[in-house]
Design a protein around this nucleic acid. Sequence first.
DNA 1: CTGTTAGCGCATTCAT
DNA 2: ATGAATGCGCTAACAG
Lengths: 350, 350
Amino acid sequence: MTKPIRLRAKRGTRRKLSSVTMMDVAAQAGVSAQTVSRALSAPETVTQETRKRIEDAVRATNYVPNFAASHLASNRSRTVAAIIPSISSSIFAETIQGLNETLLPKGYQLFLGHTDYRPDREEAVIKSFMGRKPDGFFVIGTRHTRGAVNLLKQARVPVVESWDWTSRPIDLLVGFSNRMATETMVSYLANRGYQRPSFAGIVRPGDYRAAERRDGYENAMSRCFPGQPLRIHIVSDGEVTLHAGAELLTSLRAAHPDTDVVIFSSDLPASGALLACRRLGIDVPGELAIAGFGDYELAAELQPSLTTVAVPTKEIGRLAGRLLLKSMQGESVDEKSVDVGFELKARESA
Amino acid sequence: MTKPIRLRAKRGTRRKLSSVTMMDVAAQAGVSAQTVSRALSAPETVTQETRKRIEDAVRATNYVPNFAASHLASNRSRTVAAIIPSISSSIFAETIQGLNETLLPKGYQLFLGHTDYRPDREEAVIKSFMGRKPDGFFVIGTRHTRGAVNLLKQARVPVVESWDWTSRPIDLLVGFSNRMATETMVSYLANRGYQRPSFAGIVRPGDYRAAERRDGYENAMSRCFPGQPLRIHIVSDGEVTLHAGAELLTSLRAAHPDTDVVIFSSDLPASGALLACRRLGIDVPGELAIAGFGDYELAAELQPSLTTVAVPTKEIGRLAGRLLLKSMQGESVDEKSVDVGFELKARESA
DNA sequence: CTGTTAGCGCATTCAT
DNA sequence: ATGAATGCGCTAACAG
């Protein structure tokens, strides 16, 4: 029996909701679809003349390219997946903004996922992004589950790790040493004459950056105050908030009353503690000194202002974006690891 | 001349980088690709038996579905585009986190864009997302350029506007009235006995929410203090920061020395002003009272604590996500506009 | 510089 | 419940 293919296809055929396609533009401009494609993706490979005709046709038809089709045909999605512990943590938000600022103008769009500081969730989120075939990955931290590392490697696209340091990055690295930052802080405090520093903060199991800072405290203590017992006052769950800092302050003073300076894992609890000191009538830095990490805007505005460590948050995002772009465009990146460093901000609180 | 099609195609043919496809899974499981497709998207339409075989094959082959192909074939991208003024503004970050929490578990991924509070950039960002054909849009605010509104309408997908109010939303609305919030604040302050309220803040041309709050101040003034001149102390550019609040405080006191309470456009400048008052020795609320907007965590921790208006930031994101899901799944949404309201937080600063 | 041809991987339609 | 055929819209490869 003959096959009335076209008839069969005509009825009940897939709705072409995508309205106007490249073919329509081509027809309008009197060229082939391929020429339209070229005119849009590499305008210089087409004559002034035809380019103009195509541009007019694009406007006339109100053409919107379909990136899914482009992706399928070219095997490039022009997307980057960014995975961070928490979106509402303003510190990472800055980084994402920097990343987006760099990538959007180049036509790359950002998929965003968050992990709540849980390594298993990080792996799950990465996995969930795989089907989108992003052209690049941006992740926070340098420690991940085996599964997460494998996924990132198998993706065979550039990966930027960030916000921490390692000698063996998966691919690219834009970060700094949280450990050294805290060591620097302890040394500074020792030089200032403090004798019994404590470390306090929220260090959740998956928050390796905070753990590094704690380790930095330990290292520096054995170097600056050999033999002295460590005073580590940490909670391993809960949000990183001002309020948590206030609570930590109280319990710390009960647990380690001899403390003369507290290094907090983040500016948030540090600021919370500083504000609590005012309420409790504790003189800072006279009675108790306080140091933070991150240099949030609040740190400089508090009174006394907060001694802390500044990190080029937004710059991390911008730099990561630039490295990704380079790498995604096939250029080789000579400096695969970039140390953006940190800066001690000596202020009044310590 | 004969056409050696296959031969020609064989050489230099497109690299199939996408590795393992549904066909490979099908082969492994001894079924057709369609059955695999069904087993993955609607498991209940396939026998236990075959489902299991397919699941095994998926694992064995390490299959990762290609969403671009799925998108192209089904005309559903399973993505949502979220466009916010600023990512690093923690207040919107919370909303995005709420949105993501709702959408990710349902398989929808989030494209993120930011506008820097510029309507023209909002339009540009929306346009840049069109080619991705998101299944839904989430935007901040209810005022947009004509072009932006047209783009959103032409997309023919659910759109949630948020963080403000209007009687004529594009589609769905999850917000509250910034104007009423500020009116409520002024009324409260009037009841508390304040006589000469000022409004201060950063109101950038594209920040219609802040402008609404200023309008709310004007309305309430003419109702609560008829005949009294308005004291509006606004800068129209710059970042919304603590520091800006400190500067505004100083200039405001020069411009309107009779002010007894300042309502700020946001908690950030309000908090900055509050902290500046401590430095300058201005008694709050005795000498000057201060009110904010947003109920940032800092508001409750400051001393004196900041009187402000709380908004269910994260809840806006969650609700928007739920409405989008419903609408994207083709269910009709009965309540297209949801007023999440606001809550006056009477604290010590006013 | 431009056109022709084929196929990216999947879901939809229809048949069985 | 499963299979076969078709096309979604675009770009890679090649020819001219």
